[in-house]
Design a binder for these strands. Structure first.
Lengths: 234, 234
DNA sequence: GTCCATAGTGTCGTTTTTACACAAAAGATA
DNA sequence: TATCTTTTGTGTAAAAACGACACTATGGAC
């Protein structure tokens, strides 16, 4: 088998061609108004003081999913986070110091639940997606890619609920989708649509924090979701 | 900055954690009836004699897109192929010999145009997607993932044309979409839908190979596609 | 008791989707 | 040369989904 046949070189590999594999996480949160991402201020060179996604290197004994899970827990204190691989970025000079390829994951968390201590410890900060600072390396591209993926996925899968408290109002749900899509929805059409999906339960409780009248709380019902026929959500 | 802070370890990286980065390509073709993928029979251990995707290793001086382009040209003789990254696979033991992560790309080619010499040289063979042999490592998962991506993408982008000759009949186009979706479409509804998109031109020529009456040939019109408003195709 | 801000609700016209059947062409064949 | 056969090509009507749109209900604040 000659050198030219691709996989044939598997066991004649050149150790020179080994690379560092990194994982960078786009952590999305929702504060009842805007879609946000969690960024950290780099405390070391290069690009010290610049804003960056949270990330880390893949270790020998873990998968990328493991690494992403580890990094997410490190920076938020949370495990069991919804997470999806976005893409791998491999520009030769993307990291100026060492040849590194990075696989981006986006994650959805309930913004009220993560550890405030860790936020402080890492000089982390939430930014509105539409108003975030420029990021180092190719992280801006990663965010855009993740956002697009989030839009597509949230149209067919019930992942938006991961960004909300377990009990939420219709108003919150609508604002969430408006934030994700950066577009307004008609209130009645939205509610009719959601109700027709038959995947959330209306509770007897009301949230009294945003109006005198109060608004009913709802809850995602995973069983109903699994049994349902249609494919799309929004 | 301590070891725990993710990116902080960038320049204290452990060379032990470097990995081999591979690229594997799911090459799709369409033979007027079935959606096919190009596979090669491995000529070396491990898994010698088993069927495999075409692939190769990422080199220090190239991006993953470069590597995929190189591999595609190596096995098909074609450049300028439509190609999209699917995902990166990183199970620790996916390659039994060396820690390797692999990024899958799918590619769409006109099945009549690639090099028959290369097919012979690499013991390559076309298989219907629905009837392909089991593949080595995690290549079956890669194919499923690629197929799903192809379905999603072909619903919003005019990429199906890359699988057809430049001039094609409505019948071929319909069969292509039926093959991609593994579902039948109504002939009249399909044609009405395609015509309403206003992105292909009807030519004066007919293809006489499949019927006595002959059927008109059509051609994708990129300018019309760029100017059009709607978002979805199918 | 009035004010005020937010919650909650239904209809109708338009557009899109789906289901469905027959005539035309032209070479093959008798 | 008539007819058989196979494939192409075409339209309509009913159903479903979508989009636009405005008023009443609630209940605490004042």
């Amino acid at each position: 088998m000659n050198q030219e046949t691709g996989h044939a070189v598997t066991y004649q590999y050149d150790a020179e061609d080994k690379v560092l594999a990194a994982v960078d996480c786009i952590i999305f949160g929702f504060d009842e108004e805007d879609l946000k991402i969690l960024l950290i201020k780099r405390g070391f060179e290069p690009e010290k003081g610049k804003w960056s996604l949270v990330g880390g290197f893949l270790k020998k004994e873990e998968t990328m999913e493991d690494a992403a899970t580890r990094i997410l827990e490190l920076y938020t204190g949370l495990d069991n986070i919804y997470m999806e691989q976005v893409a791998t970025f491999s520009e030769v000079d993307r990291d100026p110091v060492e040849r590194t390829i990075s696989t981006a994951y986006y994650a959805l968390i309930n913004i009220r639940e993560h550890s405030k201590n860790l936020i402080k410890q890492f000089s982390a900060q939430w930014f509105s997606v539409s108003n975030a600072p420029h990021l180092i390396f190719d992280h801006d591209r990663m965010v855009q890619h993740a956002l697009q993926r989030l839009r597509n996925r949230s149209a067919t899968e019930p992942i938006g609920f991961d960004l909300l408290p377990q009990k939420f109002t219709m108003r919150q749900l609508q604002k969430l989708y408006e934030a994700i899509w950066d577009a307004p929805f008609d209130k009645r059409n939205f509610i009719n649509k959601i109700n027709s999906l038959n995947i959330i339960d209306k509770l007897d409780e009301k949230d009294m924090t945003t109006s005198r009248k109060g608004s009913y709380l709802y809850q995602f019902n995973a069983e109903k979701y699994e049994k349902r026929e249609g494919k799309f959500l929004i």
